[in-house]
Lab assay of single mutants.
Amino acid sequence: HHGSGALAALHADGPHAGLPVTRSDARVLIFNDWEERKRSEPWLRLDMSDKAIFRRYPHLR
């Protein structure tokens, strides 16, 4: 199991509170979210491209 239990660094406060600090933090969040959702949506594709990251977390651009 590759990303399970990996912890992402999140901004503690300010405008980005609760959001990932780096792209690799964002990838951890996206992976964990996908892993949760694919139980009920097995067709869901995992997209951890930069484009997917920016779409979801525009502050990382």
Rank of each mutant, 00 (worst) to 15 (best):
K51I: 15
F31G: 01
P42H: 08
L10M: 06
A8Y: 13
A6K: 14
P15C: 06
P42F: 04
R23L: 15
A6T: 14
R23W: 10
S49P: 00
H11F: 07
L60I: 02
L19R: 15
G18K: 06
V28L: 15
A26D: 02
A52V: 06
I30Q: 00
R39K: 14
E41K: 10
E41R: 05
I30C: 02
I30A: 01
I30S: 00
L7S: 11
H2R: 08
G5E: 09
H59V: 01
R27E: 07
V28F: 05
K51D: 11
T22C: 10
N32P: 00
H16P: 03
A17H: 07
A26Y: 04
L29H: 04
A8W: 06
A9F: 09
A17V: 09
D50Q: 05
D25T: 00
A6F: 14
F31K: 15
Y57T: 01
P15N: 07
I53A: 00
A52C: 08
S49I: 02
A6P: 09
A6C: 15
G3R: 08
R55C: 13
W43M: 07
H16Q: 06
H2Q: 13
P15K: 06
D25C: 02
A26K: 00
S49Q: 04
S40L: 09
R61D: 12
W34D: 15
K51E: 15
H16V: 05
H11P: 03
F31L: 08
H2M: 13
L19H: 02
R39D: 13
G5L: 15
R37P: 00
P58K: 05
D13N: 08
D33T: 05
L10H: 02
A52R: 00
G18V: 03
L19E: 04
Y57W: 15
A52T: 04
I53W: 00
F31C: 10
H1P: 10
G14P: 05
D13H: 11
F31R: 07
R39W: 09
D25P: 12
F54E: 07
A9G: 07
S40M: 07
S4G: 08
A9Q: 11
E36P: 01
L46I: 04
D50A: 08
S40G: 12
P15G: 04
S4T: 13
P20R: 01
R45N: 10
Y57K: 00
D47F: 03
R55A: 11
K51T: 12
S24D: 14
F54N: 12
M48K: 01
V28H: 06
H2V: 09
K38E: 02
L19F: 05
R23M: 14
G14W: 04
H59L: 00
R39L: 11
F31N: 02
V28Y: 07
L7K: 10
L19Y: 05
A52Y: 15
S40A: 13
A9H: 14
S24P: 04
K38N: 10
R45D: 08
